[in-house]
Design a protein around this nucleic acid. Structure first.
Lengths: 135, 135
DNA sequence: AATTTGTTGTTGCAAAATGCAAGAACCAAA
DNA sequence: TTTGGTTCTTGCATTTTGCAACAACAAATT
């Protein structure tokens, strides 16, 4: 019943978000201003609703996300990044940069071009602007 | 039968190495000087042999790794990184840094401390030293 | 020559995770 | 009281993973 396979930090990280969906939810929050279940569900990769619930539950349990009632709509929940979640930003950016570099079918958009030009600056700027939203 | 879920570079990357094992094999090569099937099999996380074969096959098909007969031992295979595989280094380092930061049970070793102190320098140095081994 | 050792797999079966489709629960607004 | 939006559940089929045993092959050893 051990949670982690080893005490290697890479292994422990993968035990948490090493799957095909978790980082896409994080991406939606960080880069696409999505915050709710229905918005995540609508993303182009078409995650199944039961998987989405499961991942949100895990990410919340891991204190990567925080779930709250929407201030604007009382019958809606919004998910926010914690500092721990925000600290995934460099990982997300590096993965995006690698994916864009090695996939013809992945055209770099504005942010992709900025990353290619000055990755550190993009991380710094995005981190700064997301900082005001963390919980 | 589409290979990728979308044309998002993050999604495309996760379609390739978004699982609990692929990046551990890459870690073994990058940071632990492991190069062969039996060495990967012996790692502390205890990957199953059929999964290992499957992941090595995928990583080779994706041109992240190259499989060759060992020069030193003709009945042995060695796996080497390609440039594409080496370019995963920043991702691996960022994941290691995050994992060490948020897991009590993951003591930072020498490399972990160097990463905390100067991440960019570690990536640069390691990248430089691994460059001579790529195929 | 026969046996052992090292290395790289394969196979069958059980267990777990994922994917899919339908719909339920809940609340708010009309 | 009906409609629509949002979140979540359920049942079932499919796929992936995990586990354990063992097979194939070559080199080294006896």
């Amino acid at each position: 019943m051990e949670k982690f396979r080893s005490d290697c930090p890479i292994s422990c990280s993968l035990d948490v978000f090493g799957d095909k969906w978790s980082l896409l939810i994080i991406r939606d929050i960080m880069l696409r201003d999505k915050v709710s279940y229905s918005e995540f569900l609508g993303s182009e990769e078409k995650i199944a609703s039961n998987i989405l619930v499961n991942r949100l539950t895990v990410l919340e349990a891991e204190k990567i996300l925080v779930k709250e009632v929407s201030p604007a709509n009382k019958s809606k929940f919004v998910y926010s990044l914690t500092q721990k979640g925000l600290d995934l930003l460099p990982i997300v950016i590096e993965i995006m940069d690698w994916g864009a570099k090695y996939n013809e079918n992945c055209p770099r958009k504005e942010i992709g071009k900025k990353i290619k030009k000055d990755k550190a600056a993009v991380i710094k700027e995005l981190s700064q602007s997301l900082k005001s939203k963390i919980r």
